[in-house]
Amino acid sequence: MNTSINKHELKFGMISVFLTGLGLTIVSPVLHFLVKFYTSNPSSQATAVTLLTSIYALSVFLVAPVLGALSDRYGRRPVLIISLFGSALGYFIFGLGGALWILFIGRIIEGLTGGEISAIFAYFADITPSGARTKYFGWISAVVGVGTALGPTIGGALATFGNSVPMYAGAAITLLNAIYGYFFMSESLEKSKRSSRISARHLNPFIQLSNVFSFKSVRWLLIAGFLIWIPNGSLQAIFSQFSIDTFAWQPVLIGLTFSIIGVLDIFSQAFIMPRFLKFLPDEKIAHLGMISEMIGFIFIAVSAFTAFYPVFIIGMIFFGVGDSIFGSSFNGMLSKSVSASEQGHILGGSQSIQSLARFIGPIIGG
């Protein structure tokens, strides 16, 4: 087990998750405005936006456990770098547009390489001591939160120069991250700790998913996460359309409000989680996170009937805090449950389950 952390590895990892968060959210405020050129009415626009969200999640579902298994066998570095190059290509194609089907192709390519987050979590599991893993996973969430907070704001601002500009910015950011990793990322998984072989069964996402549920110690944890991620995916998919239809908001304001989630990630990991970890186990923290999310959904539902945006913002605050503390405690419990050679497997499987929920949720919301 690691007793110390290489500062260069930690620095690279934090930069990677920051740029991943920024690249993912920079496009969120303009999705509706890109789609409206290829649809005829608000209903079909909402359906197209949520399907674009769902197809991304479905693609991640299919590939995340595969990438996790590949990283267990061949190391984190090649899987992560190749995935980032693919994500950059997906953003670029999405920005080019020209037809609705081209948007879907770009989103699918981005999703098929979007399972790199499982390799990132496995990378951090490699370089951090087990006892401090929940804390570091919490800081990963906070750093992603910084990127998430800046992404929608920058995306909304860049949209003033054209709705495709945030997509090109996302491509550039992800490409720079891949280049940085190619030159500076060291391999974190020693050859002696890698899986001895990989078979066709490891590349079948449905078999991998069933294997993940064979870990009895985390089976119910994964089910709880699945049930939480369904409404979360629904909310994030319809956020822009809901804001436009209910409050008549424009991209900049949508981006600023969406940034609340990222800001609360930072706040939660800087002030709430350190205090919780002193007195509460991961399980109790996860329970508190779920309760906070439920309260948030109640406020958001009320705002839909009242069209009173302060109620919506209060709901987003409760949701953001709950989502942050649930996510870090969830990943901490999950990582501690398996050995070093299974980190990619279990975290990739978790990402796959999350993506399946985020495939179902947007369809329901749309």
Rank of each mutant, 00 (worst) to 15 (best):
M1I: 12
T3Q: 15
S4T: 11
S4A: 08
N6Y: 02
E9Q: 15
F12C: 12
M14H: 05
M14V: 05
S16A: 15
T25M: 12
S28I: 12
L31G: 07
L31T: 11
H32N: 01
H32P: 00
V35H: 04
F37L: 14
S44F: 08
T47M: 01
I55Q: 07
Y56I: 12
Y56S: 13
S59I: 08
F61N: 01
P65F: 00
L67V: 05
G68N: 05
R73N: 02
R73F: 04
Y74I: 11
F92G: 05
I93L: 04
G95A: 11
G98P: 07
A99L: 02
I102K: 02
L103E: 05
F104A: 14
G111I: 09
P129H: 02
P129L: 03
R133I: 04
K135C: 00
W139P: 02
A142Y: 03
A142T: 06
V144R: 14
V146H: 13
V146M: 15
G156A: 02
L158A: 14
L158F: 12
G162T: 10
N163V: 15
S164C: 02
A169Y: 10
A169C: 13
A171S: 15
I173K: 01
T174P: 03
L176C: 13
A178I: 02
A178T: 01
G181M: 11
Y182M: 15
S186A: 15
K191W: 01
R194F: 06
S196A: 12
R197Y: 13
R201I: 01
H202S: 02
L203N: 04
I207P: 05
V212T: 14
F213P: 01
F213E: 02
S217W: 05
S217I: 10
L222M: 10
A224R: 05
I230P: 12
L235I: 13
F239Y: 09
F239V: 04
S240Q: 14
F242E: 05
S243P: 09
D245F: 06
T246P: 00
F247P: 06
P251G: 04
I254T: 02
I254Q: 03
F258H: 04
I261Y: 12
V263M: 08
I266P: 01
F276Y: 13
F276K: 06
K278P: 08
F279H: 14
E283F: 11
K284N: 11
K284C: 04
K284H: 11
I285Y: 09
H287T: 11
H287G: 08
L288Q: 11
L288I: 15
L288C: 11
I300F: 07
V302G: 05
S303H: 13
S303D: 13
F305E: 03
I314T: 13
F318C: 10
S324G: 04
F326H: 03
F326K: 00
G327V: 00
S329Q: 06
N331D: 07
G332Q: 06
G332I: 04
M333E: 09
S337K: 09
V338Q: 04
S339K: 10
A340G: 00
S341L: 07
L347D: 08
S350E: 11
Q351V: 05
I353M: 15
S355L: 03
L356Y: 07
A357Y: 07
A357V: 08
R358L: 01
P362M: 00
G365K: 10
G366I: 01
